[in-house]
Design a protein around this nucleic acid. Structure first.
Length: 581
RNA sequence: GGAGCUGUAGCGAAGUGGCUCAACGCGCCGGCCUGUCACGCCGGAGACCGCGGGUUCGAAUCCCGUCAGCUCCGCCA
């Protein structure tokens, strides 16, 4: 039996002086002075300095960094002048009476300390070492605390945590599914859930009324810094509710999470409609931590000689503009960069006006009249030293392109105010046109209620039909998304029809849901958070890989286990599968 | 699928006008040292420069291809 710990390194303090303790941990650092050896011993809770006399304990000579050791010793105050004010436990140390090497270690493949610049490739390959670094361990602790806060809060609010199947069926639309072949049903496949959507609705039919789950979800699409093939959703659903009930539960929950982490946030959160978000910010997830709002300045150019503007206005397009205060000093190169952002996001070009003293500079100066500039600067409240940027196009395109420029400027020129800018975006469009499929598809998902008064627009102007769908946005990042669901078979069938999903297909894929709707379905709605993203926002990281213990690379492989891997022919045969070539 | 950036010892990182150029720091190994905490001092090992091909008398350095990691676009109801 080894010397078993009865205390934690980081939790020792002056009050424990004189006590004998046993500590287990990793050797952070060995400082061998010959007749005296200092060891910094690390566990999850922190570091403590240990002194060893190698003449009494020759084992200490063998100890190296990252060895796992046990020591028994006395907590003592450090001698005069040997106190380390940079260390939480810097006033004390352990005088070792007994030392046991529990397991040696090879030289670490990466430094076990904060603020390293080791390539992520290496960190992921040796993730178990990477997670020893205090800043990483802290993220795992924080993730746990957030989950705990959510569970505690929702429990108090009467929610039940219920698990739904991971082996389920493939659903049409949405992301590509991960498939799992069935050994017992030849030629049949399970799909891993993209979200527990249908099950949570069924739980409402069951009368369980308030459900939540920290659910693992799977989507076989190309990855990004904030997108992993498997990720965790905080999935919630409630019966007998409308939007207000969901907003208030979520706001209460967010307040509790932040409060437990020692931060106050202001609730309720502001709200804007999707339409307003697009008009004012050119995106459905506006970052409110800085200004630079978009304005429609078409009226300033109603009689313009500038052909680019006049022809776009004539064909029903709009001119959107924003004012970048102080931006007139940007170099030509910097402005070119902004233009590239606009073009990459669908604009044909970016018109700019730099307001200098007594004059303005612009590549299109000779086409623009003085009175147009006056009208423009008045509308945008622009002043000398400012830079006006404009995109002319079909309205949505112009807004989106300029919105991308706005987001870029906010980021690149550090215009963002510190703080947590939450925002509800409501009344999302019910459907959107899919170029790929040549038809309208559900913008959120096909179980979302359309706004009753808009249903009549389906045949005239499908894009104007609004849905009872909403997103929660934090500092320009989509945190959560949800909707009030359809709860009647009739409306659900009608919606499938609106989405041109053939009845047979709907019956085949979601017959069980339609059937369930016939057995007494309460009005219900819900929301799902990207849990990894939520934690990422709280740690201030830029990728969710930082808050996932064992994440995958952009190619969707695990550098640690080297998954996915090959399988035996026998396994394939059992699954009735054969590989081509 | 497309574009960009990156790849030199365990880690970080110099070196690209072509020819003893594979520097430096951390880590590692050995020795000395009883108050260190970026311990110090002395000594040492470790890289075929992501991989493959080409040009050349000569390639980490130039060309072509390829692989991997990351960022962005497409994609992600």
């Amino acid at each position: 039996m080894f010397l078993k710990k009865n205390a934690n390194c980081g939790e020792l303090n002056k009050d424990k002086i004189g006590q004998e303790v046993v500590l287990n941990g990793w050797v952070q650092k060995r400082r061998d002075l010959g007749g005296l050896i200092f060891l910094d011993l690390r566990d999850r809770t922190g570091l403590i300095q240990v002194t060893v006399n190698p003449e009494e304990l020759p084992e200490a000579e063998k100890v190296r960094n990252e060895y796992v050791i046990a020591i028994r010793g006395e907590v003592t105050s450090r001698p005069e002048g040997a106190i380390n004010p940079d260390m939480p436990t810097g006033e004390i140390e352990i005088q070792t009476l007994e030392l046991e090497i529990l397991n040696p270690s090879q030289a670490s493949p990466l430094p076990v300390e904060d603020n390293i610049d080791t390539r992520e490739e290496v960190r992921l390959r040796y993730r178990y070492v990477d997670l020893r670094r205090p800043e990483m361990a802290k993220k795992m602790v924080l993730r746990h605390q957030v989950a705990k806060a959510i569970r505690d809060f929702l429990d108090r609010e009467g929610f039940l945590e219920i698990e739904t199947p991971v082996l389920t069926r493939s659903t049409p639309e949405g992301a590509r599914d991960y498939l799992v072949p069935s050994r017992k049903s030849k030629g049949h496949f399970f799909a891993l859930p993209q979200s527990p959507q249908l099950f949570k609705q069924l739980l409402m039919v069951s009368g369980l009324e308030r459900y939540f789950q920290l659910a693992r979800c799977f989507r076989d699409e190309d990855l990004r810094g904030d997108r992993q093939p498997e990720f965790t959703q905080l999935d919630m659903e409630m019966s007998f509710v409308n939007e207000e009930d969901i907003f208030s539960v979520v706001e209460g929950m967010m307040a509790e999470i932040y409060q437990r982490l020692g931060e106050e946030i202001k609730i309720p959160f502001p709200r804007i409609t999707y339409r307003q978000a697009m008009d004012r910010f050119g995106t459905d997830k506006p970052d409110l931590s800085f200004g630079l709002e978009l304005e429609d300045v078409s009226d300033s150019f109603s009689e313009t000689d500038f052909k680019v503007f006049s022809s776009i206005i004539a064909s029903g397009g709009r001119i959107k503009a924003l004012n970048f205060p102080g931006g007139a000093g940007l170099s030509r190169k910097e402005i070119d960069r902004l233009e590239k952002v606009a073009k990459d996001n669908g604009a044909k070009g970016l018109v700019w006006l730099a307001l200098k003293e007594e004059s303005f500079q612009s590549p299109v100066k000779k086409f623009i009249r003085e009175d147009e500039v006056v009208s423009l600067t008045t509308k945008l409240q622009a002043d000398y030293g400012d830079l006006i940027l404009a995109v002319a196009d079909e309205e949505k395109k112009a807004s989106q392109a300029l919105g991308s420029v706005r987001a870029f400027i906010g980021r690149e020129y550090n215009l963002r105010q510190p703080g947590n800018f939450f925002l509800w975006v409501t009344e999302f469009p019910f459907m959107e046109y899919s170029e790929e499929e040549n038809r309208f598809v559900a913008a959120h998902h096909p179980f979302t209620q359309p706004l009753k008064e808009d249903i009549k627009l389906v045949d005239v102007d499908p894009e104007r039909v609004r849905a009872r769908a909403y997103d929660l946005v934090l500092n320009g990042v989509e945190l959560a998304s949800g909707s009030i669901r359809i709860h009647s078979r009739d409306l659900q069938e009608k919606v499938f029809e609106m989405l041109k999903i053939p009845l047979e297909e709907a019956e085949e894929k979601f017959g069980f849901l339609l059937e369930a709707f016939q057995y007494g379905t309460p009005p219900h709605g819900g929301i799902a958070f990207g849990f990894d993203r939520m934690v990422m926002m709280l740690t201030g990281d830029n990728t969710i890989r930082e808050v996932i213990a064992f994440p995958k690379t952009l190619r969707g492989v695990c550098p640690l286990t080297r998954a996915p891997g090959l399988v035996d022919l026998k396994q394939l045969q059992e699954l009735h599968l054969r590989l081509d070539d």
